[in-house]
């Protein structure tokens, strides 16, 4: 699980212009790096990173994206 989590974080840190990513973009990047990784394992890794406070969800209401906590433009009041 740790190698999956590391692959997720490395992918998110490597974004040049984007800071928020769809799950399947993360899934594809992790599978490219760790062949044989399963989608559900990648999801579990992302959920653990969310619980640890490393990642955060960004929701438009209809779709949800993942990003490193504190990065990118933040909609606030």
């Amino acid at each position: 699980m740790d190698d999956l989590k590391q692959a997720v974080v490395e992918f998110l840190q490597g974004g040049k212009t984007k800071t928020k990513f769809y799950f399947n973009e993360i899934d594809k990047a992790v599978k490219d790096k760790i062949p044989g990784a399963k989608t559900l394992q990648v999801k579990k890794a992302c959920s653990e990173l969310i619980n640890e406070g490393v990642l955060e969800y960004y929701s438009t209401g209809s779709t949800t994206l993942y990003g490193l906590k504190g990065t990118g433009i933040r909609t606030e009041g």
């Binding site: 619980n51 955060e56 969800y57 960004y58 929701s59 438009t60 933040r74 909609t75 606030e76 009041g77």
Partner: peptide, 10 residues
């Protein structure tokens, strides 16, 4: 302004 990072933990 619609959307954002708000939510409950987990």
């Amino acid at each position: 302004k619609h959307g954002g990072i708000v939510g409950v933990i987990g």
